[in-house]
Structure formats: structure tokens, C-alpha cells
């Protein structure tokens, strides 16, 4: 272990990692630099943009606001962990269908924030979606298609749930 670094046990996208980290390393840095999970983006240095949003123990959190060592023993889900090209998460599918992204840089964070939002409010109104996205900035889309995508995702998740109940 490098001098002054601390051991860290963490589960990311279902995989356990035991690595050492610099105590000052942010969770966002750890995910990108140590694990190579570059889907989590860093758009600012003042915790405003939300591009770095991940699920930390199931809650949407800006990963630049958390030290990696604070995530000891936690479960982290990044955009790479929610779905794949062949098996998209409802939110990913909805962002694709509704043109919820342009340059795509904010998108992983926005989708993770949307997942967090829909966990708290499975049937949000447009106003609730807009308010719920206050932690993220998108410079490209004007938000309208992001809102549509979140509405669409809510419908898909509800349908998935119905199917699951039906099974």
C-alpha cells in the first residue's frame, strides 16, 4: 500500500473491490481513476453540476461530495451498472427514445438523479420532475426532453412493476 493511503472495501456495480486510496480522493475520482469507470463524469469542482451522480446505498448522491473512504462498506451503482446496450434500464431506454441527451456528458448523472427521483416519487408531475432535477445542469437539451424521458421512464417502471406483480 502506498504511504498514507487507506484501505477501502467497496462494492461497485455488484463487484467487491479492496483497494487502497488516498484519504483525500473523492468517490468520483476513485471510480474514474482507480476502477476505470469513466461513465461517471466530472463537470465541476463546486458540486453544482450533478454529472457525477451515482447511487450510494441506493440513494442518488453527487460522488464528488463524498470521500472515497466515506464509502467504506457501501454499495455504489454507476451508470455502467444499471443496464447494458442489450438490456437497458427503463431510464436509459426512455432517454434514448425521448432524445433526452445531446452531447451526453451530463447524461449519466442526470439518469442516476432520475432513478433517485423515481424511487422517491414513482409518479411525479412535470413540476416535481423539474424541481427534482435541480441538482443537475444540462447545457444542451433545454431539459424538455429530459423531462419527457423521466415521465416516460416512470411509465415503464410502473409497467415493469405491474408485470412483476402479475408474475
Amino acid at each position: 500500500m502506498r504511504e498514507g493511503w487507506e484501505p477501502l472495501k467497496i462494492t461497485v456495480n455488484g463487484v467487491q473491490h479492496a483497494l487502497s486510496v488516498e484519504p483525500r480522493a473523492l468517490l468520483s475520482e476513485y471510480l474514474r481513476e482507480e476502477l476505470g469507470l469513466t461513465g461517471t463524469h466530472v463537470g465541476c469542482d463546486t458540486s453544482q453540476c450533478g454529472a457525477c451522480t451515482v447511487l450510494l446505498d441506493g440513494k442518488a448522491v453527487k460522488s464528488c461530495t463524498v470521500l472515497a473512504v466515506q464509502a467504506e462498506g457501501s454499495e455504489v451503482t454507476t451508470v455502467e451498472g444499471i443496464g447494458s446496450v442489450d438490456d437497458l434500464h427503463a431510464v436509459q431506454a426512455a432517454f434514448w427514445d425521448r432524445h433526452g441527451l445531446q452531447c451526453g456528458f451530463c447524461t449519466p448523472g442526470v439518469m442516476m438523479a432520475a432513478i433517485g427521483l423515481l424511487q422517491e416519487r414513482p409518479h411525479p408531475t412535470e413540476e416535481e420532475i423539474r424541481a427534482g432535477l435541480d441538482g443537475v445542469i444540462c447545457r444542451c437539451t433545454g431539459y424538455q426532453n429530459i423531462v419527457r424521458a423521466v415521465q416516460d421512464a416512470a411509465g415503464r417502471l410502473a409497467a415493469e412493476q405491474d408485470r412483476a406483480v402479475g408474475d
Binding site: G39, H41, V79, E80, V85, F95, L101, P108
Partner: peptide, 22 residues
């Protein structure tokens, strides 16, 4: 038509400059 660039971008597989590691 749905965008063909999106699959890589919505799954975190885009390769922006800062993602390049050598």
C-alpha cells in the same frame, strides 16, 4: 429516427477526452 450515437452514451461507454487513459 432515434440517435445512433446514444447507446454508447447512455451506458457510460462514451469516450470523452478525460476518459482517455494511457
Amino acid at each position: 429516427h432515434k440517435r445512433v450515437e446514444d447507446p454508447r452514451l447512455i451506458t457510460g461507454r462514451g469516450r470523452y477526452t478525460d476518459d482517455v487513459r494511457l
